[in-house]
Design a protein around this nucleic acid. Structure first.
Lengths: 215, 215
DNA sequence: TATTGTGAACCGGTTCACAGCG
DNA sequence: CGCTGTGAACCGGTTCACAATA
């Protein structure tokens, strides 16, 4: 009932990965126990997560790998190609242009933008870098669905506004700032520096295992 | 009491960011309301998060920016320099070598490793790429605390094992796999492809805003 | 018999209201 | 008087036990 927990969506992604591996290895079926072991999640949790979306298993036998994989791909929206743009062609943006997912069918890099005249015009990966000023025009023309946002923190909010105005539906934000977007634009953060700082917290807090209050 | 919620640790990082900005702008004090507005968190939550670690505010007046910032840096373990290595010098590893945090004091890039002879020996950023085989030796010599793991998914678990054996305490895992590490080694994931797939889930699930069950 | 699917119990994080205090 | 600090209420996600069933 009601909405799906965000944590569930995150786990679906990892189940799908495992199923893809299993399929490649020729494994035909897997139990919630198997999936749980591979993803470090309890078998209860696996079943509950899947139950939000329907009944995919066979009692007594588990899940058919190919079927469940297909269902998860459908649930996660991976059955149609997504047009992706990279905004900000610094080091990180350039590295992302070679992201292996762009070789497969689901994600297609269709544009790259920057404000720096020294970068604009250069061909990187499959695309040529264009001026951010042409975003609206290009977004309409090539039906950009999603964007990788790899601009400096100070420029992130402005870029989000421009992307939202251009009709982009989802943004993967690599900039270390909290940005605000309209209701109809989804932002997911991939935050390296936050991860790094969480890491130092836990590492220095050891050996108390889970982060003792230092008082 | 007991352990600190992981979500709290994540939010501390964003509070710290905001405090750093405020300090640069010359702002002297901030209320939990101010911090909450800037980080998109309720003021209640801000106060509760901080209360896990002590009393940092002044009733009626809010928090002194400089003081709270110093305390959060201490709590997050950012008062001493951390020695970081990058394992896997593909595109992403190379991009990370230029990560701005390495210009500041808290994080120092002290080594870079790869298995590819074509890359070993090349100077990238502040370091020269070394063979992964020399990890144990180099880790001891340069007191590597943390590692950025940017190897292919298939190589990730092996690298984690090697890093753990070499005494590395924390790993920022960029590979799209769930890895297992000993108790005393903390792993934080920075997972681009997972973020991308969560994004497609939410974007396709619109316009039902929070992801309606499709049945 | 083995394993799923699920209502109910549990637990922990978030929200809240207000007491405490500068 | 304003804003923090916090015990209690609330809510939602996780865990669990077991009924359903191939």
């Amino acid at each position: 009932m009601s909405a799906i927990p965000a944590a569930t969506v995150g786990r679906l992604v990892t189940y799908l990965r495992v199923l893809t591996e299993l399929e490649q290895e020729g494994v035909r079926s897997a139990s919630s126990d198997d999936l749980g072991a591979a993803t470090r999640v309890s078998a209860f949790q696996v079943r509950k997560d899947l139950a939000y979306f329907g009944r995919f298993g066979t009692r007594g036998a588990g899940y058919t790998v190919a079927t469940l994989r297909r269902e998860l791909r459908r649930i996660l929206g991976l059955t149609r190609p997504w047009h992706v743009a990279i905004v900000g062609m610094g080091r990180l943006g350039q590295a992302l242009a070679d992201y292996p997912a762009f070789d497969r069918q689901e994600f297609r890099l269709v544009a790259a933008f920057d404000v720096d005249p020294a970068v604009i015009g250069r061909r990187i990966g499959a695309v040529q870098v264009e001026s951010l000023a042409s975003l609206a025009e290009v977004a309409a023309e090539r039906a950009i669905d999603l964007a990788f946002l790899t601009v400096p923190a100070a420029a992130a909010q402005g870029a989000v506004d421009a992307l939202a105005a251009a009709g982009v539906r989802g943004i993967l934000n690599f900039a270390p700032v909290v940005v605000t977007a309209p209701e109809n634009v989804r932002v997911e953060a991939v935050d390296l520096s936050a991860g790094l700082q969480r890491l130092t917290y836990y590492v220095q807090a050891e050996p108390a295992t889970v982060g003792e209050v230092t008082g």
